[in-house]
Simulated assay, not measured.
Amino acid sequence: MSWRPSCQLAALRLRADILAATRCFFAERSVLEVETPLLSYSTATDLHLASVSAQVDLPHQQGSKQMFLQTSPEFAMKRLLAAGSGAIYQTTKSFRNGESGIRHNPEFTMLEWYRPGFSLSELMSEVADYLSVVAKLDKPDVITYQQAFLQYLNIDPHRADEQTLFQLAKQKTGISGDGLSRDDCLDLLLTHCIESKLGCEKPVFMIEYPASQASLANIKEIDGIKLAQRFELYANGLELANGYDELIDADEQLHRFKADNKARKLDGLPEIPIDHHLIEALKSGLIKCSGVALGMDRLQMVIQKTSSIDDVIAFPVGRA
């Protein structure tokens, strides 16, 4: 046990510089800085995200209410967009349960921004500008999900059958199980065999993920394959950011939330209350937009050339 911060004081000064440069970057582009709640009655339904829950007592209400610390500010920011905010960003704390290690802390800092009217390629260009201005990083290359699997594993992730993917995942990772889905196998192969090789010479955007991994992104058919209109940004083998051509169809969004909860139930995971505020906001009308979430702690890891998140935050969970 130690009361001292895990990082050097120079890291705190660097974080202050990054935050100041971030504010300048968006101010020059007339992107509005906003704040949204950390606590909400609903949260992400994604099977691969575990939220931190809290029991909250409210005056004049009987019993405690279950609330959640947000895995990202996405839902509330989209409500602001639907209300006519225009382009917005925020730097905020986010929380994910069960994530702790040299690259993860259950409490972390996220930069998230949304650009109404921007295509995904236009947003990628702005992300590249941000990396250049704030982190002095090179303009990222672009690789498709398919190209990455072909290059590093010699397999087409979109056309390979489930048994082939299962056997390859077992061979490459040593992990197997009757309950592994197609996406589970792809995720294992990506995280164990590909991610560490991405962005090692210069940052790289990976695009055109399988439609089954769309999450909150739109889907487009390309060469007969349905693909998620999203990207992930990698540098030095670290995933830094996740961007979407945002889904704005309320009915489809509700369908995906319900499908997530059905899958969660089958996996023995708790169902998540659906964010009907978001659904109603989408119904009211959200113009076409693109958005991105970027991990500030990981970005600082790249700038500092360190492999441990403890080197860029003052008090990780072990010292909180």
Rank of each mutant, 00 (worst) to 15 (best):
P270E: 14
C200W: 00
T191V: 02
C193H: 00
S53E: 08
L233Y: 06
I207M: 01
G177S: 06
P106N: 13
K170C: 04
L294F: 08
A250P: 09
K136H: 09
C200V: 04
R4L: 14
L165R: 08
L227A: 10
L233A: 05
Y114S: 02
G63M: 13
D46R: 08
A135E: 00
A228Y: 09
A50W: 00
L153T: 04
V292P: 08
I143C: 10
M1Y: 10
R96I: 09
E195A: 10
N236R: 15
E271I: 15
S290E: 04
Y209V: 03
D129Q: 02
P59N: 08
L111E: 06
D245H: 11
E35Y: 12
C185D: 04
H276D: 10
C7W: 01
I222V: 14
L294N: 03
N261H: 09
L240D: 09
Q163G: 02
A82S: 13
V317S: 13
E126W: 06
G224A: 07
T22Q: 04
F257G: 03
S308G: 10
S212W: 00
S94I: 07
M110H: 00
S284V: 05
Y145Q: 01
L131I: 01
Q70I: 10
N242R: 09
P203W: 01
I175R: 11
T109K: 06
L269T: 10
E35V: 09
M296V: 15
T43D: 14
D187R: 09
Q146V: 08
L153N: 05
S181R: 07
D184G: 02
T91E: 05
M296P: 03
G268P: 10
T144Y: 13
I274N: 12
P140L: 00
Q8H: 14
A135T: 01
L80D: 04
S64P: 03
V127R: 00
G174W: 00
P270S: 13
D260C: 11
A217E: 07
I279H: 13
A11I: 08
K197T: 00
R182P: 03
P203L: 01
L198K: 01
Y114T: 01
M124W: 01
V56H: 03
A44M: 10
S212M: 05
G98P: 12
T22R: 04
